[in-house]
Design a protein around this nucleic acid. Structure first.
Length: 104
DNA sequence: TGAGTGACTTGAG
DNA sequence: ACTCAAGCCACTC
């Protein structure tokens, strides 16, 4: 019955653990999931999430503090709004990444 | 089995 | 600070 959690499942758990009001990068999460340099894979996994997922996918941004979607896209605005509602600070289209600290 | 794909990353220029 | 190109990984057909 019980099997080893897939990398995908581990990633879900890690994303779920990103604290409110903070963000993590794709590469950062990939490394934590045991897949160094697997940043693109993280995006692939998140893309498969159902629209009504409870996972805080919006707290995942690029390593440069930008949202991965095109600025004019619907998805961008949706993620942007969620981040703003969590009180995240912005500098133009970017979030200063230095604030983030991983706390397991 | 192999070529193609993408919600990325990094290093140069 | 911005743009471009090459690299990397797991997944899909």
């Amino acid at each position: 019955m019980s099997t080893t959690p897939t990398k995908e499942q581990r990633l879900w758990q890690i994303v779920n653990a990103i604290p409110y009001g903070q963000v993590a990068s794709y590469g950062q999460l990939a490394a934590l999931a045991g897949v160094p340099r697997g940043a693109r894979w993280v995006g692939t996994v998140l893309k498969k999430l159902p629209t009504d997922t409870i996972l805080p996918w919006h707290r995942v941004v690029s390593s440069r503090g930008t949202i991965a979607f095109p600025v004019n896209s619907k998805a961008f605005q949706r993620q942007y709004q969620r981040l703003v509602s969590e009180g995240i600070q912005w500098q133009g289209n970017r979030i200063p990444m230095q604030r983030y600290q991983w706390v397991p």
